[in-house]
Design a protein around this nucleic acid. Structure first.
Ligand code: FES
Ligand code: FES
Lengths: 147, 147
DNA sequence: TGATTACCGGATATATTTGTCCGGTATTTG
DNA sequence: CAAATACCGGACAAATATATCCGGTAATCA
């Protein structure tokens, strides 16, 4: 569904958000990678994308790390994360790969596929990182499996 | 959403199905690639997968080519095509990439994501190649854009 | 039977995604 | 200021997806 980069980006953002909301605490790269079960260096690349897009805040030096401001917790949506990493392709593209998804020359799946794609867009648009972080905080959601 | 291989596979199957239903006519690789706008050799690889999976029929030699039998037209679903090419990953996997999508240790998106994934599964499961080929035949769907 | 046709299958090439390494820079602390 | 910390950024490496090439094989037809 999403790329690995995007999966890591979302999980990392939620973890950072949870720690920021919970303790007002910054978290370092090593901590993040451990807690979400992702490769450290690759996760760094993804986070740099999000920082440059203004979706996550980073601070250098001792006591530094990543955090989400109160405003970021409240306003940053899943959609913004996905677009920053994977681009808008999957959120607008044709299911069968036609260059342009449109009712002008629709593929045979177009009218069946559209409502599903729209629901996915809606899902991403209406869920903030802060909201998802809350679920993790309440033990209703996990960012890693232990088994 | 789907891989390129899968997109080509679906479009090719529908085109083959349309020609089989319409004219009882076999179609060659070159014809297929031209009509759906895909790279010829790569499309061949994908079709070989589908033939081996029994979803498409091929005949060698002069007057040979690819076709869909009446039974294949009636029974082969999009889901079978997708599974044969991309595997079941996307149809069962976790949106955030957790190793196992399950209510035991769900990711924070699990309960919102599940109904959408289920609808996608249902869409693929309930549409046959013959049905989609009919739309193309009736000019209600296209497998390539001319612009 | 010989020649032609067209799918088959393996090897190879290219592009993209995923993952790693390492020195640079900004920041804190003593 | 000096040393330690931790993100930044570019180069590099590996894995996978996409795409091509070419000889082999089966089938048709004259
Ligand atoms: S044209 Fe294919 S999904 Fe819209
Ligand atoms: S656990 Fe993530 S979608 Fe089910």
């Amino acid at each position: 569904m999403f790329s690995k980069a995007c999966e890591y980006g979302i999980r990392a953002s939620i973890y950072i958000g949870q720690q920021s909301a919970d303790q007002g605490r910054r978290v370092g790269l090593r901590d993040i990678a451990t807690e979400i079960g992702s490769p450290e260096a690759f996760t760094a690349k993804v986070l740099q994308l999000l920082v440059r897009a203004g979706l996550v805040t980073s601070v250098k030096g001792p006591t530094g790390g990543f955090e989400l401001t109160a405003e970021q917790l409240r306003t940053v949506t899943l959609r913004e994360i996905v677009v920053a990493i994977d681009g808008g392709e999957m959120l607008q593209g044709c299911a069968l790969g036609l260059r342009q998804c449109s009712a002008r020359q629709p593929c045979p799946m177009h009218y069946q596929f559209l409502p599903i794609r729209d629901q996915l867009n809606e899902l991403l648009r209406t869920h903030t990182i802060g909201e998802l972080a809350g679920k993790v905080h309440d033990g209703l959601g996990f960012l890693k499996q232990f088994s």
